[in-house]
Design a protein around this nucleic acid. Sequence first.
DNA 1: GAGCACTGC
Length: 722
Amino acid sequence: MPSMAQGGFRNSTDNLKRKVNFSNHSPRKPHSFARRQEIAQQRKSLPISAVEKRLIEEVRNNNILIIVGETGSGKTTQLPQFLFNAGFCRDGKVIGITQPRRVAAITVAKRVAEECGVELGQKVGYSIRFEDETSSSTRIKYMTDGLLLREALLDPYLSRYSVIIVDEAHERTVHTDVLLALLKKVQYERSKSVSGHVHDDNKKVGSGMTLGNESGGLGSSIIKQCQGRKYPPLKLIVMSASLDACVFSEYFGSAKALHIQGRQFPVDILYTLQAESDYIDAALITIFQIHLEEGPGDVLVFLTGQEEIESVERLVQERVQQLPEGSRKLLTVPIFSSLPSEQQMRVFSPTPAGFRKVILATNIAETSVTIPGIKYVVDPGFVKARSYDPLKGMESLIIVPTSKAQALQRSGRAGREGPGKCFRLYPESEFAKLEDSTKPEIKRCNLSNVILQLKALGIDDIIGFDFLEKPLRAAIVKSLEQLFLLGALTDECKLSDPVGHQMARLPLDPIYSKSLILASQFNCLEEMLITVSMLSVESIFYAPREKLEEARIAMKCFASSDGDHLTLINVYRASEEFLETRKLGLSKDKAEKIMGKWCKENFINYRSLRHARGIYSQIRGHAEQMGLRLSSCGEDKLQFRRCLASSFFLNAALKQPEGTYRALASGQVVQIHPSSVLFQPKPECIIFNELVQTNNKYIRNITKIDYLWLTELAPHYYIMQN
DNA sequence: GAGCACTGC
């Protein structure tokens, strides 16, 4: 019996003790005088408002500032407004604020537009992929960090911006890391463009940079492009929620760091007395311990994946029935990203009177979704993490312990509305052994895309590039090699013309970008546009456990004996046809609705399909602009499969006697994932798009090809190898 | 015959 079942939690010595401030949340009354007063009152009560003058002064005096603001400090909404009012948008300049997530960019922009009393898209706007709510009058612009990176490809000096604020930098997404490196360079170059030499306060900034490599770098390319033009200095503000501000400060030449107090309620942290052998069982016991012994308030339980969530849900429901009748008012609500949105919404519906809600969540509830009413957090201390092995070209999804920062983030979820409690299902001595923070994404992902982007920005020395944290040399070399094999790089490791430049312009995985270029030569660009759109989104098919058989039958209607790629095309075209026949005279809302219904009937994930349609129209536009020939191979599937072989020759595999496959590039033994339409027939030779290790090494998205095509279509790889 | 955390252009 786990120790907590005997009440084995004890108070931690390092409870989160923070200053408490209260705010009144009254109902929204837009546009009314009362509403404006309410907003003014709320703004004034934010911790950041007390330091407005000081902040503006620091921004004036420092070209780079690190701001550490705890949750609820108001830094994201207020700082841009302070800067605007202080005149940082003179001469039509823009303040840009980047976010790692789309929803954050949208919701914050809406809030700030309301606070300013302006219509969204005017003075205050946002821009994310597929949605641009800005205009020529926009001065405060929220956007995703990936979008600003794309903007930099068109405007390397980021000349429209007077200030760029990188928010949530502690999350260390690839986009954030690359953006920070780029901004450091841009800032240095802009300061040079004004004065012809480096300013005193910029010398400090530039000191950590590799000036020796400027010849092929951003500097020279920008100077060429922007010859004779002068830009005012760029102000850079890096905002982070965590304590490791020194990482950013050091990177930017001992930049000044400021701390702003947050507004979070205290959370009691409790640990188990002993290590738990089974964290699922420990979580179950803790849930019931809270339910029976603690005061009212909902419970948030962090689990690692869908399967765990579903099994815990069943177990909780079983055990509730064994409780005395008066104690059975316990509801379970699951949430994870692949759950259809209407089911995700259940976490927001108020808990019925007298009930306690137990939310079973993946780390979607850590940052992406904020659930109201949480007073208790149960944290087993594990997370399913993706990592990438550059040598094998293989991703893996494995369950690992969380970091300290992650544990802190999770416990903070209990203190949003009042004091809370967090039950960590491991001893305090184990907490001390955790990594401080999660490994930055750039150290555990395929770098091909990053490198292609940097090359397109004129940065050729990737190994010497001044990253915030350097990726493994082997990972860089492997990706350079892949880009070379795809024809994106020349023998001198420069971006090739036109292929490399075209590939860099497309917002896709480089291997998919290349497949579009090839497809225009194979006369099947239409088919390939659909294919890469469908391959770029989360799983298209959705099969709930209880309707697995029905889902299988539905999927058969779309299946192609040639493989998954043509199956995906069939799904896309069927949805197009369905919409074509119905949409005449339908409003956009109505059309979406019947599309959603069609998806449900066919066991297709509506969100994924809609996303794929968005990508399709975007990349189709790019392809047209590039002058790629839009053609269809019609019924000639052979032509399309030959194009797939030509595009994905790096991912070819041959069947072995036991029915497993050998990946030709890496020699690894892999298996076809059972969700593939080719799981049953098991053809001799195939190409695949994904290699992920879970319980086994699985390949997914597979099409059957002829072995001879490989030497014919990719002789530079296959003939050289033999 | 398995099962896939989360983002983003």
